[in-house]
Amino acid sequence: MHNYEPFEADRAAEIIAKHQAREGATLPILHDMQETFGHIPDAAVVMIAEALNLSRAEVHGTVTFYHDFRKEVPGRRVLKICRAESCQAAGGDAIADRMEKRLGVELGGTTTDRRVTVEAVYCLGLCHSSPTAMLDEKVYALLDEEKADALCAEAER
């Protein structure tokens, strides 16, 4: 569970300064921004572009290319359900359906109470024990109905 800070230009400038001298600093800055603010605000894009001597279009292009970077702050917890081949082979379709129904939200959405954002992920590298999921940074494998329900309950808590 993350407690994100509201966006502040000073804080963003601090983050940029921390990474600015690194080679290829854009992704480290974006990761750090998202870790801090929960998303990449447009104002941050402008600041990054200026600091790294890039055009806003270039930074915007980078932000929007990657699935990880968000436009909005996610729910209090983020549940990623693996939908790749190995998990499909091991009954993952039914497990994902069940979890979507139980949380009342489709993959890619956030519950109305903003407790949980549910996303599809394409492989967590736990395919030896499919189906799998990740709640924030904690991983779960060999999901069956019982474990999926418990995981949803944990996510909603």
Partner: peptide, 26 residues
């Protein structure tokens, strides 16, 4: 260590290099 950002195509070597450079992983 550099951390990716959820793009499968960045496993392709030249796309990975662009990503390391801070660009779109093309």
């Amino acid at each position: 260590v550099r951390v990716g950002a959820g793009a499968y195509v960045c496993g392709e070597e030249t796309s990975l290099l662009d990503s390391l450079e801070g660009k779109r992983g093309e």
